[in-house]
């Protein structure tokens, strides 16, 4: 597994670089502890960690909303929060869910956020707002008051605000939180689209499979500390895959696998898993069949990020934190 350098001097390659970034809230809570993050340009970067692990706190520091207690953060090669005015017009962000003016229509909400950007030309505001609404599929609902929007629509309007300008970096803090599967799919499709345009996407999530589905790179946080970061493929490669036998005869199957010297055999309902065999897997199949095991499925499952996480931390990924 290859670790990316903590900070790259060439900002063309590293969009976000932090060094020993630390935040202790006024209550004394150490939320982020000595974080060294490097987000390569053009990546879809998953920022993974259970609830309370410091993801939102990190994003607040990157966006200049809160001051780090110590350490530094550079976004697009410039220090934050010092260079907020120069950096943020190139960054779209969705932080801790959307926030809208309920008494304004969806369209007017975007007009308001666009007007807040001093680098946004007022003459092209309407065009930009219409394009952003179209991009997230809210053109038909543009005239409705935002308080009448469903959560999914609010989330999409928040994304539209983040996409008012062509961005170099899109920061999304748990963008699928609270959405139904259809809503999640829509958001993921949008993320892929934005990434295909060349925008670097920094995506925080407590959902492993979400990171696996859309990210090229990932960093794993736990209790404010960075556990690892790198390309998703490299992270997953750190953990070996698993042999999976699907069968109603789990007892017999487990016995045969153990006889063949396969380690860590785990019996589940209708399937038995274990470490991948050293030699030809076909020999294992033959042995199973010879022992009268009704084999319904057989194969080696690719290692997942979750396997990698377990391998790294020696514990399960506890979503509840």
């Amino acid at each position: 597994m290859e670790e990316l350098p903590a900070a790259d001097p060439d900002p063309g390659d590293v969009v976000i670089a932090t060094r020993a970034l630390t935040k202790r809230y006024r209550g004394g809570q150490l939320a982020v502890d000595g974080l060294d993050l490097a987000v390569p340009a053009g990546s879809v970067f998953g920022f993974l960690g259970p609830n309370g692990s410091g993801k939102t706190t990190t994003i607040r520091m990157l966006m200049g909303l809160i001051e780090p207690t110590s350490g530094t953060a550079r976004v697009l090669g410039r220090p934050m929060p010092g260079a907020s005015r120069a950096v943020l017009p190139h960054v779209g962000a969705l932080i801790e869910g959307p926030a809208l003016y309920g008494f304004l229509s969806g369209h007017d909400n975007l007009v308001r956020y666009d007007a807040a950007d001093p680098t946004a030309d007022p003459r092209t505001r309407r065009t930009r707002v219409a394009a952003a609404l179209d991009r997230v599929g809210l053109t038909a609902a543009a005239g409705k008051k935002a308080k009448a929007y469903s959560l999914g629509m609010k989330q999409r309007l928040g994304l539209a605000a983040a996409l008012l300008q062509p961005r170099r970096l899109l920061v999304l803090d748990e963008p699928t939180n609270g959405l139904d599967p259809q809503g999640m799919r829509e958001i993921r499709a949008l993320i892929r689209e934005v990434a295909a345009d060349g925008t670097t996407v920094f995506l925080s999530s407590h959902l492993l499979d979400e990171i696996e589905q859309v990210c090229t790179h990932a960093a794993v946080m736990a209790q404010g500390r960075l556990i690892t970061q790198g390309a998703v493929a490299d992270l997953a490669a750190g953990a070996r895959g698993r042999l999976v036998v699907t069968t109603p005869d789990v007892g017999d199957a487990a016995r045969v696998l153990k006889e063949r010297g396969i380690g860590d055999v785990v019996v589940e309902e209708n399937r038995v898993t274990g470490e991948p065999p050293e030699g030809d897997p076909a020999a294992v199949t033959a042995a199973l069949v010879a022992a009268g095991v009704r084999v319904r499925g057989f194969g080696v499952e690719r290692a997942s990020l979750e396997d990698a996480f377990v391998a790294l931390t020696g514990e399960g990924f506890d979503v509840e934190g």
Partner: peptide, 18 residues
């Protein structure tokens, strides 16, 4: 209260300007 402050600030409205 509405959370819109953080989005105005990342727009970036600028604190003094806002």
């Amino acid at each position: 209260n509405a959370g819109t402050l953080r989005y105005l600030l990342v727009a970036p409205a600028g604190r003094a300007r806002l």
